[in-house]
Design a protein around this nucleic acid. Structure first.
Length: 584
RNA sequence: UGCCUCGUGGUGUAAUGGUAGCACGAGAGAUUCUGGAUCUCUUUGCCAAGGUUCGAGUCCUUGCGAGGCAGCCA
């Protein structure tokens, strides 16, 4: 895959931004990433993060992370912390210079380090902004709208409000006097009324073909404790009112959001216009959210999987959450490269997960250290190799990167090979080990299978082989060709490790399109094995990626302990033999 | 139903009125001490019909299809 781009990406949004710079409309570009802290970030958010921080980065501007926290019922501090950890992890070393440091003024950091990476995000420079920090100015703007006759307090029930908007009928409270509206709004704020008893509504146009212009609700009453403002407020602005004003207050120039907010844009513009704000106003631009095959992306569904125990938590490596993918071993640079390659459009597409998998393999092929490990061991005895003898063979750490050097791996009379690398009656074109057949042990000798040992059930439990002792890699006869080369581990030296093999969480490409997405959960999405590994894997580092040769890429799981190594399989190697075997 | 938006190979995208490219996937071959990687090559596309123009994927009209919105969620 194309390496991460030297040249910046190009898309319709960047075109607009570039035009605004060229025309002199803006001298400083300012974007924002505004998650609601009601769940963990997922790979769809990485698209938005890379877009917003990417633009700030390319145009020498800033990007604010802002918690869009106007609904106290759904939001929690845990989510604020996870979001910030994920954002930092994703942009660190790439666009972290564009993270707006002014947010430090908000309050001291309470964000804990990430246990699974040791990565701390406690710097005071790394505070998020909060929409809830603007509750006071937003309220003042509401008062201003009331004063100018552009908003009113409405006493209708939620059901009535819905019905009236649907049929385009005006509220009986629409023509309330300014003074009364002011009084009522103040009393709403003071807590005199119960939840839902009254709302503040914009006075726009009940006949508008755009529903969001039919006197939308600006404030609702909620006697609830807010994760950030506590009990300071009992009225909360809705998204439409809070978002455009938060953008304005932060000096955002380009407010990028997903397609479903398209119909809200006239309201976004109406509010800023109605307030006759003095400074330049932000522009909302919509783009299509990311959809990926074989997974689900909605926070609601992810939360359901977590809450119902169908996965092990928000950071389960099978989930498309940022924390899940990180735990699985996917790196931030892979996610950024992927975001770059999927592009930005207004077409609601469904991206094949192959594109993500390709991005992972492309990076890991370049960077991962090669190691030998056997997932499903079959014992092999080299009958002509002396008992008790051991030698160390040279093994290359990464053929794609000579600077990665080499290491020694022990060889002895008793080995393990992958059980799939032996077949008693193989199909055509199978060039691994078979009775009477030869194969090379990677970095070692060419061996020949002389005898197959079975148990009482007729299962193969051991192979007795003879080695061509002159055929050792680098030795006199090392040029001799055999069709197959397989990986192996010396039995007495093998390190046992738990390996967690992950597969797609769903069995269908578009679980969202089916009725009940949970009916399509892949029952084999997790398989746990005990692998036999070369000894050097005892020193595996959490920040490194490993290719178990001929198998897959792995990384250390945070559950690992000094003498208890656990590996997560991030992604298998491409396997064209599997395809071939399926054909037969 | 109303309103908004979007339709380029199987998938994701490029083109800014001037030769429809790229990537992923798929297929074939070469090479290989990883059936990986690498290198060749191949395949498949402008939703449809009109119009404007010397020239239309691009502009206009109509039709068709898809997605979004119609919470006191964001």
């Amino acid at each position: 895959m194309p390496l991460p781009p030297n040249e910046p990406p190009s898309d319709f949004i960047r075109d607009i931004v570039a035009d605004d710079v060229r025309s002199g409309k803006h001298t400083k570009i300012h974007t924002r990433f505004p998650p609601e802290p009601n769940g963990y970030l997922h790979i769809g958010h990485t698209k938005a993060i890379c877009l917003n921080f990417g633009i700030a980065h390319e145009f020498g501007g800033l990007c604010n992370v802002r918690m869009d926290d106007t609904n106290p019922a759904k939001e929690e501090v845990e989510y604020v912390n996870s979001i910030m950890a994920d954002v930092h992890w994703l942009i660190d070393g790439w666009a972290d210079k564009n993270l707006n440091p002014k947010a430090a003024l908000d309050q001291p950091s309470t964000i804990p380090p990430l246990p699974w990476t040791g990565y701390a995000v406690a710097s005071i420079d790394h505070q998020p902004f909060f929409a809830s920090n603007y509750f006071e100015p937003i309220y003042q703007y509401a008062v201003q709208l009331v004063r100018s006759g552009k908003a009113y307090v409405c006493d209708m029930t939620p059901e009535e409000t819905d019905e009236y908007r649907r049929i385009g009928r005006e509220s009986p409270f629409r023509e309330r006097e300014v003074a009364e509206n002011l009084d009522l709004l103040a009393r709403m704020k003071a807590g005199e009324f119960s939840d839902g008893a009254r709302t503040l509504r914009a006075k726009i146009d009940m006949q508008s073909p755009n529903m969001w212009l039919r006197d939308p609700v600006l404030y609702r009453i909620r006697h609830a404790t807010h994760h950030h403002t506590g009990d300071a407020w009992c009225i909360y602005p809705l998204y439409d009112f809070a978002h455009c004003l938060s953008d304005y207050l932060e000096g955002i120039t380009h407010s990028l959001c997903t397609l479903e907010f398209e119909v809200h844009r006239p309201l976004y513009d109406w509010i800023l216009e109605a307030l006759e704000l003095p400074d330049s106003r932000p522009k909302q631009i919509e783009f299509a959210r990311l959809n990926l095959t074989y997974t689900v992306m909605s926070k609601r569904k992810l939360k359901q999987l977590v809450d119902e125990g169908l996965v092990r938590g928000w950071d389960d490596p099978r989930l498309p959450t940022i924390s899940g993918m990180r735990r699985r071993g996917v790196t931030a640079s892979v996610l950024r490269a992927f975001s770059y390659h999927i592009g930005i459009t207004k077409y609601p597409s469904l991206t094949e997960v192959d594109a993500l998998e390709h991005a992972i393999r492309a990076e890991f092929n370049r960077s991962a250290l090669r190691r030998l490990a056997v997932l499903r061991p079959l014992k092999v005895v080299i009958t002509n190799y002396p008992e008790g003898e051991m030698e160390e063979l040279d093994a290359i750490n990464n053929p794609e990167d000579p600077s990665a050097g080499s290491r020694k791996i022990p060889f002895s009379r008793e080995l393990f090979i992958e059980s799939a690398d032996f077949m008693e009656t193989p199909p055509p074109k199978y060039f691994r080990l078979k009775p009477g057949g030869e194969v090379r042990l990677k970095y070692g000798y060419i061996i020949k299978c002389d005898e197959v040992v079975k148990n009482s059930l007729g299962e193969v439990i051991e192979l007795r082989c003879s080695a061509d002792l002159k055929s050792k890699s680098g030795g006199p006869n090392s040029q001799r060709k055999v069709k197959g080369t397989i990986h192996w581990v010396s039995a007495p030296h093998a390190l046992e490790a738990e390996v967690r093999l992950y597969d797609r969480l769903f069995t269908v490409p578009d679980p969202d399109a089916e009725g009940d997405f949970k009916a399509f959960i892949n029952p084999h999405s997790l398989e746990v094995l005990t692998a036999k590994c070369e000894p050097s894997l005892g020193d595996a580092k959490p920040e490194l990626r490993y290719q178990f040769e001929r198998l897959a890429y792995f990384s250390l799981d945070p559950d690992s302990r000094p003498n208890e190594v656990i590996f997560n399989r991030t992604i298998t190697l491409r396997d064209t033999w599997a395809k071939e075997a399926t054909k037969a």
